[in-house]
Write a protein that binds this DNA or RNA. Structure first.
Length: 272
DNA sequence: ACATTGACCTGGGAGC
DNA sequence: TGCTCCCAGGTCAATG
């Protein structure tokens, strides 16, 4: 499910139920996520107050009294607020009980997600320390991207999906942003002009902001944290539209594979 | 330093 | 109906 807008939508959805409250209990039914859920986590988080619910890249960060609970939704993860703990499903791996009667439930069929704990500054955490800027921050601009791309021969699509360059640009929005900027996804990152990079930066910010406003894209199983679907899928220009007419020029949309991921683009509108 | 590939998992849909 | 194959929103770790 989750690209950055979905993760941020989830954060906003759960924040009012969690922030300022205390974790009364945690139940882990399946420790085998991307990394094992730490053995002592239930005991560690019990009775800790959550002071902030933040996000860095696609990581959700629950700032607690004694450290930070780090949660990643992976490819198929979901986090919902429930009024009770009924109807436990096969993929409901972790429940976090809040002292206001709500339960945060982490569901993840593919188990690519993660639930971890750190007592160190998260900026120095192994998984977070090397991440690039947030795409919606001012730091992410044409100068930055152009400088980073200098001398790079790899394709621009993989480049913008690289979390060390910029975080939060997943497959769907990488496709959409390149279409809006009129850049061929296979073009070498280092051969793109600064002017084009400026267009790309604006396109990335635009698609992410739009999706954020819509509450995240609905594809397969995405639901906002309250269980209602998001509704951005109908605004996609190229993603998932192989052989359908380009919405700008009517030429059929192409689909190729880059780094084992599907890339959709229009040959007419996105020149090399 | 950079680029590419495999790996982690399950479920759903297409095709036979 | 049921089997097999392929695909899926992420991203780390290992390899050239």
């Amino acid at each position: 499910m989750p690209e950055l807008p979905e993760v941020e939508t989830t954060r906003r959805g759960i924040q009012p139920y969690v922030e300022g409250n205390t974790i009364s209990k945690m139940v882990v039914r399946h420790r085998g996520l991307r990394w094992p859920v730490p053995e002592q986590l239930e005991a560690i988080v019990k009775d800790q107050r959550v002071t902030k619910v933040e996000r860095r890249a696609k990581y959700l960060l629950f700032r607690c009294d004694k450290g930070t609970l780090i949660l990643h939704l992976g490819m198929s993860g979901r986090l919902r607020v429930l009024d009770n703990d009924h109807n436990i499903g096969k993929h409901d791996h972790v429940d976090i009980y809040i002292n206001n009667g709500h339960v945060l439930r982490f569901t993840d069929p593919r188990r690519f997600g993660a639930v971890l704990w750190t007592e160190a500054d998260t900026d120095t955490h192994q998984l977070i320390a090397h991440l690039g800027p947030e795409p919606l921050a001012d730091l992410f601009n044409a100068d930055y991207l152009y400088q980073k791309a200098k001398g790079r021969s790899g394709n621009i699509k993989s480049f913008i999906m690289n979390g060390e360059i910029v975080v939060g640009v997943g497959n769907i929005y990488a496709n959409e942003a390149l279409f809006l900027a009129g850049i061929h996804p296979a073009k070498a990152a280092g051969k793109i002009s600064k002017a084009k990079m400026a267009e790309l930066v604006e396109a990335i910010k635009l698609v992410l902001n739009r999706a954020l406003l819509a509450g995240g894209t609905t594809l397969r199983d995405f639901r906002k944290s309250d269980g209602k679907p998001g509704y951005f899928a109908q605004e996609l220009n190229v993603y998932g539209r192989e052989n359908e007419p380009c919405l700008r020029c009517q030429a059929p949309i192409n689909c190729i594979r880059q780094a084992q991921r599907a890339t959709y683009f229009c040959k007419q509108c996105q020149r090399r």
